[in-house]
Design a protein around this nucleic acid. Structure first.
Lengths: 202, 202
DNA sequence: CCTATAATGGACTGCACAGTCCATTATAGT
DNA sequence: ACTATAATGGACTGTGCAGTCCATTATAGG
């Protein structure tokens, strides 16, 4: 565990993480080897173990963190401005687009299942990601409340949680079947029901 | 590939599948070995390869099929009789109970991610499971329509798809976080929205 | 410029584990 | 009872791959 990383060191470390992420997406977590990662990132065994002394698992956790950050970063432009129904629809389209392009790879899910039980840190990463994601949705719903598009008595957290579940479900079905219909339907329905709650309850 | 299986053979084969399923749940797909399965099922190497000539992958696919059948079988008593709102709530409780007990194991998901890309059969199993599951939900919704609890113009398939996504999302969050709140919320919200569609649109 | 520490190269080890092979025992059909 | 085929036992092989070790080169700080 190198206490100090020089500029060069930091560069190499992130080259490894990003390259590993790419390899994992291509070959799948199960069949990606350290040699694959070495080849891709033009590094040697000792470098991998220099930056990740605990070995493969530690590297996988680092990649998981990287991928998790990526998820929110990608949709931040849309997720951060959920202040009108049009904005919600743009966000929905962005989410669908992202996952359709990603296809049947789920780096994070696969990573989690691989490392999951053994490493406690892995679970924490996913929990934190989901928490932040749901919170962003909640903020968006509160914006709609603040501008009078949704009634104040709506249970924001429950709605946000349900939406998050809808996304996750849609994505997981996309991963298993290769079809994005469920993701699309779940999001459409979720937003529509939210909207309906506005006109019905208000 | 034994063309004919004697009674004894069939018994052994299913002992292997069921034992393997148990081992996979306990140790995780990634770290379960053929030796683990041999120990658990009191079989030898040659038996494993006798019944699953293509080796581990073939066995994993068989286990996936077994687990998939299990999923629907378990909830059939409830899923098969969705003819009143109370029945829907009983089903919801059964689903939640089942997955809470299962905890953070997802044999099918893990199996799929392991075998997935390589074996085409694996995907087919999951697709078929989801198809049947959604169809059961659709039948339930149509029952509600038939008895006048829901308007006839409701888009049944879309609603069923959204519900299925809600479940999958709730489950996948349960798997990652260990908490069943999202599953509960997603199902509650999904059923509530369905019900609301009944009173609002009708 | 000198030295401590970081960064890198790459050969080597060890073993876990899938898959092979052949020998032996049980079972079914005639 | 006989024979073909299924069922079982278990030793053996091969290798893919994580992880170790030591030697060499670069970099930073005084």
């Amino acid at each position: 565990m190198p206490g100090e990383l020089t500029a060069k060191g930091k560069a190499t470390r992130s080259r490894i993480v990003e390259g590993a992420a790419a390899v994992l997406r291509e070959k799948g977590v199960g069949s990606a080897t350290l040699d694959d990662i070495m080849a891709r990132t033009r590094t040697s065994k000792s470098q991998l173990f220099h930056y990740f002394p605990a070995g493969k698992d530690e590297l996988l956790v680092a990649v998981a963190q990287f991928e998790a950050d990526q998820v929110l970063e990608d949709q931040q432009p849309y997720l951060g401005r959920l202040d009108s129904w049009e904005a919600w629809e743009r966000w929905r389209d962005a989410v669908i687009k992202r996952y359709e392009e990603q296809g049947d790879q789920c780096p994070l899910g696969a990573l989690f299942l691989q490392v999951g039980r053994s490493t406690p840190g892995a679970r924490a990463i996913v929990i934190e990601l989901l928490r932040r994601w749901q919170e962003s949705l909640a903020v968006g719903i509160r914006r709609l409340q603040a501008t009078g598009r949704l009634p104040a008595e709506l249970d924001v957290d429950v709605r946000a949680a349900a939406l998050l579940a809808a996304i996750q479900g849609g994505v997981s079905i996309l991963l298993s079947t290769g079809r994005s219909t469920h993701l699309r339907v779940a999001l459409d329905q979720g937003i529509a029901d939210l909207r309906r709650a506005g006109s019905a309850v208000a």
